[in-house]
Design a protein around this nucleic acid. Structure first.
Length: 468
RNA sequence: GUCCCCAUCGUCUAGUCGGCCCAGGACAACGGCCUUUCACGCCGUCAACAGCGGUUCAAAUCCGCUUGGGGACGCCA
């Protein structure tokens, strides 16, 4: 099989959003699977809405997701002459013609067709007028008089459309600029595309583009139209329906591996497997098993996927990734030696980096600033607990070395020697140390806090217990 | 309105040529175990083939219709 060439072609009119990210992932995966080429093209011909900052943002998100592209990035605004050379070919071969109809006239044709219960379309008014170039004249493609356009879609199977449903579309505007379909066909051909995976909303453009390829005598690439991603409410994912940009997930502390894993799995499957490493994704994704029906985005499952990734990744990597979140939350800049135990203690309790960093809060503030959860304090800071805390203060003060193992021994001995049960001692102790009934193993928490801080926390809590 | 596409648990999905599917996995929910809290982990429960016809010995799987959903009909991309 000839080398596979795929592409991602966003318009820089906004940040990279989930739907775009997913089509980028599919194209990237297909290219990497077959050892092919993955190209990037910026469709910036909409001068009013396109902005450099969006191009930068999209590229940043692509890099963050780990989707590397091959070759130079193609910017459509730099290729007007190229597109026009193709329009000229079409004009020369008689497959295109000049049209002098005004927008108002074309609109009237559409209304008329609509009134007759037909699809609104251009009626071919200038088709055989033999008009030459002139002011205000656009160029239209001359469609075959009859026939069907049939293509085998990678995800939806065979799709057929009657040429009668289409009309002689504009391929070059009166201002000399090519239209979208024209530019896309020229670019996809010039860039050597063999496979094009894109959103569902393009299926109706596909017959038009195929007709263009045929008129130009060019080979038609393979198309695959993936359904759009729906929101929780089954509505199309839009800004109003919780559609978030990739960059926001990054800010929320999601791991790119997890987002790629989740998105790849949305609309594609490999048996019952849910979790994939990047290598597995590349190994298994071959353009088959793409689901033709639309999928709803589920951020709960994304969170699960992220939590899993966070638990499995190397500790050193996790430490490096939470660090910025720790400082953003105002906990200062911590050494890896301090961050490591924190990550070990809390990584399986958080579902994203921000949440993980946030869970460090009770252990990074001073004893005097620790806030007690009212409910837990009321329940566990009772007079009886004061006795335990007081004895423990003394025992811990003389615990040497003050590490998890020895702390555990002290705690166990205290409970055993006094015929107590852990359930009587642990709650007040935990509340004293964490401020609420949560967190990791008590001995590890104390070891992290250090002797002095631990004793201080117990003493402060004891005061509350005595008050009752 | 016209054309195109889609239709399995609440959600993501498995389901090679129809039989091994009174439909499997995962997330969520619920229950339990583990336990020094919360989590993780483990075990279990709940839960779906849109409807109606047809083909067939046999249909979630094939065909048709209906219903429902989505998309497209620009000198936007």
């Amino acid at each position: 099989m000839a080398s596979v060439v795929t592409r991602f072609a966003p318009s820089p009119t906004g940040h990279l959003h989930l739907g775009g990210a997913r089509t980028a992932i599919f194209n990237w995966l297909l290219a990497r699977h077959f050892g092919g080429t993955f190209r990037l093209r910026i469709e910036d011909t909409d001068l009013l809405r396109s902005k450099q900052e969006y191009t930068d943002s999209i590229l940043a998100s692509m890099r963050w997701l780990g989707l590397d592209w091959d070759g130079e990035i193609v910017y459509q605004t730099t290729r007007t002459e190229l597109y026009n050379s193709y329009v000229e070919k079409l004009l020369a071969s008689g497959n295109a013609y000049y049209c002098s109809c005004t927008s108002e006239e074309v609109e009237a044709m559409r209304q008329k067709a609509k009134a007759q219960g037909l699809k609104p379309r251009y009626d071919g008014h200038c088709r055989n007028l033999g008009l030459g170039p002139g002011d205000g004249r656009c160029v239209r493609l001359r469609l075959p008089d009859s026939g069907r356009v049939v293509f085998d879609d990678l995800v939806k199977g065979s799709i057929a459309v009657d040429v009668k449903e289409l009309d002689d579309m504009v391929i070059r505007r009166a201002d000399g600029m090519p239209t979208y379909n024209m530019a896309v066909v020229v670019d996809d051909h010039e860039m050597g595309l063999t496979h094009i995976i894109r959103g569902d909303d393009h299926v109706s453009n596909t017959p038009k583009q195929i007709l263009l390829y045929q008129a130009l005598g060019l080979p038609v690439p393979r198309f695959g139209h993936v359904p759009m991603i729906l929101g929780k409410d089954k509505q199309k994912l839009s800004k109003r329906h919780g559609a978030k940009a990739v960059i926001e997930y990054e800010k929320d502390g999601l791991l790119p591996e997890a987002l790629v894993n989740y998105l790849a799995r949305l609309g594609w499957s490999h048996g019952d497997q849910e979790l994939f490493s990047r290598d597995e994704l590349i190994r298994f994704f071959d353009g088959t098993n793409l689901n033709p029906s639309a999928a709803c985005f589920d951020d709960v499952k994304l969170a699960w996927c992220n939590a899993h990734t966070m638990r499995e990744m190397p500790l050193s990597e996790l430490v490096a990734k939470v660090r910025p979140f720790v400082s953003t939350l105002g906990f200062g800049t911590l050494e890896s030696e301090r961050l490591e135990p924190l990550c070990v203690m809390f990584r399986e309790r958080a579902s994203d980096l921000l949440g993980l960093a946030e869970s460090f809060r009770p252990l990074l503030l001073n004893a005097t600033a620790l806030e007690y959860a009212e409910k837990d304090a009321r329940k566990h800071f009772v007079p009886a607990a004061a006795v335990h805390l007081k004895v423990l203060e003394g025992l811990f003060a003389s615990c040497e070395p003050f590490d998890a193992e020895h702390i555990d021994a002290v705690l166990n001995a205290y409970v055993a020697d006094n015929g107590l049960r852990f359930k009587e001692v642990a709650p007040p102790l935990r509340t004293a140390l964490m401020g609420f009934m949560g967190g990791s193993h008590l001995n590890e928490i104390m070891a992290f806090l250090g002797k002095e801080e631990t004793v201080q926390r117990l003493a402060r809590a004891r005061a509350f217990c005595e008050k009752g």
